[in-house]
């Protein structure tokens, strides 16, 4: 790790100010991607702006029938929250399956979504549950947020403050972990929004999280695992690595989607 200067502003406004005035500054949320990268000297920010002290970014509440989750809320907080468990149990279940207990006590929903790691779990929930990402500048719909691997609609200096999730949605997340890293090799989040169904796939896509239109169409008519027989995602835009090639990932997407549908019944 190279030397850097550490800042811990108490407000989003101050964090934004630091981010815009300091050269080569990086936001630190949970740090699970940033810190290992810095230790390996692959990233060398001159300034670290730690968001931990910004109280308004922590916590969970319900507003106008929506679940509002602060960007700095940890995975374990989401997993154990009574509000999330009663209003959106599928999201609590996903959070409970991220990494291990150490990761869940440090990692944050804002950090995970802003980083948009193609193997992260949260992006699939945000996309399938059709959440709104609220920043210090605007509101962004999930469909417009994830723009590619490690790429999002966030602009320079833009800071996610919280997420707004619709509630009362039947859904479930089924993950097939990478045997080594335990990140999602394929993760499928299925969510039933009244007559509409949204299926988001993480871990598999060459461009990060994506919606599986063919699966959504099949499930709209019949929200049952059987409806997915013979349906699938083309292997063309899927990742190949030493753990899973594109054909295996394509196969697993259907299998995991079926398991998610079963769990969501």
């Amino acid at each position: 790790m190279y030397e850097f200067e550490y800042h811990h502003p108490g407000s989003v406004e101050n964090a934004a100010k630091l981010l815009s005035t300091l050269p080569e500054a990086k936001l630190l949320a949970g740090g699970h991607t940033l810190l290992p990268t810095m230790k390996q000297r692959l990233a060398a920010p001159k300034h670290i702006v730690d968001m931990r002290s910004i109280r308004e970014l922590h916590g969970i509440h319900v507003k106008d029938g929506h679940l509002v989750i602060g960007a700095m809320t940890t995975h374990s907080h989401v997993a154990e929250s009574a509000l999330v468990n009663s209003h959106l149990p599928s999201l609590a279940a996903l959070a409970a399956g991220i990494g291990d207990p150490h990761v869940r006590r440090r990692g944050t929903i804002g950090g995970s979504v802003a980083n948009n790691d193609p193997a992260a779990d949260y992006p699939s929930a945000v996309l399938a549950l059709n959440a709104t990402i609220v920043t210090n500048q605007r509101e962004i719909k999930a469909d417009a947020f994830f723009t590619g691997m490690f790429e999002t609609a966030l602009k320079e200096g833009e800071i996610i403050t919280h997420f707004v999730f619709p509630t009362g949605i039947k859904g479930a997340y089924a993950k097939f972990p990478n045997p080594a890293s335990r990140y999602a090799m394929v993760g499928v989040f299925v969510a039933r929004h009244g007559a509409d169904v949204r299926v988001a796939v993480t871990g598999a896509g060459a461009n990060g999280v994506f919606r599986a239109n063919a699966l959504e169409a099949a499930l709209k008519g019949d929200f049952s695992p059987k409806a997915l027989d013979g349906k699938g995602v083309s292997a063309d835009d899927l990742n190949t690595d030493m753990h899973a090639d594109a054909a295996y990932r394509a196969h697993l997407i259907t299998v995991m989607a079926k398991r998610a549908v079963t769990a969501a019944q």
Binding site: A180, S181, M242, H243
Partner: peptide
């Protein structure tokens, strides 16, 4: 070495 960390080498 492609498996040079626990991210890729499965213990």
């Amino acid at each position: 070495l492609l498996t040079a960390s626990f991210m890729d080498y499965a213990m």
